[in-house]
Amino acid sequence: MASGRSTGTPQRGKGGRPPQRGKNPVAGARRRTSSAGRAAPKNRQVPWLLIGAIVVVLALIGGIGFFLFDRSAQISPWRPSSDNKDPSLAIPGIVTQSYQGQHHVTPQQRVAYDRLPPFGGPHDGYWAACNGQVYSQPVRNENMVHSLEHGAVWIAYDPTRVSGAALDTLTAKVQGQNQMMMSPYPGLDQPISLQSWGHQLKVTDANDPRIDQFITSLKGNPNGVYPEVGASCDALGPGYFDPANPPAFDPPPYPRNALPMNYQGTSGAGGMGGTG
């Protein structure tokens, strides 16, 4: 554009001196800036303002484009945000169910859970340690469900189908990570099942990318996808919950006196803001 302008016809110019015509317009413009060139012609000036305007426009377009692209590129689509409170809902195969929190049972009671493994409902007053705990033995459902209420992601696996490298892969996602716990779950219908409060995803392969999508979407999600944001995953120890000696696994069938999922016979802990 600029070159087209400077080599264009000069007929619209005015006040220019004929000797300057045909000369390099850049030289003419340059001379104009010197003190000796005050009377230099202006009809062949390079349109610096026009060029500048175009440059500024292009820079603005580029800058804004980069700003938007950069912003969208650095945020994982699975990270929860105020615009996308629960990204896990877009994971193929995810199962969700709404549960009411804060209903507790005693260490002697059992709950007739509606899912296997359970991912919500009444639970023991003591939560299982979920501060990156890798349990080598299956753990009582009622304690694990309480940890889900605190925002933990629980990886359950069928010990007959997941071992070796696959088990190492899963362990690396859990060991030492807050709000993560893992335990074997004999009788699982799929090799691997992930639970978060109200969310479940069953997969067959430890390298399935949906595992990380599930964890990124739900672990530490501050948007109320689990009942107790900020609750602890730490264990208090023997007499409460001891990760070295957790309560024994209690799979179905459930006894006749197991507490139902309609919360009849459980104690609501919410009113006093208690042990939750």
């Binding site: 110019g13 349109p47 610096w48 305007a53």
Partner: peptide
């Protein structure tokens, strides 16, 4: 003195 505006062709004024 023949400023940049008058020296610019019509299409350049439009673009500007």
């Amino acid at each position: 003195g023949g400023g940049w505006w008058s020296n610019s062709p019509g299409w350049a004024k439009g673009v500007l």
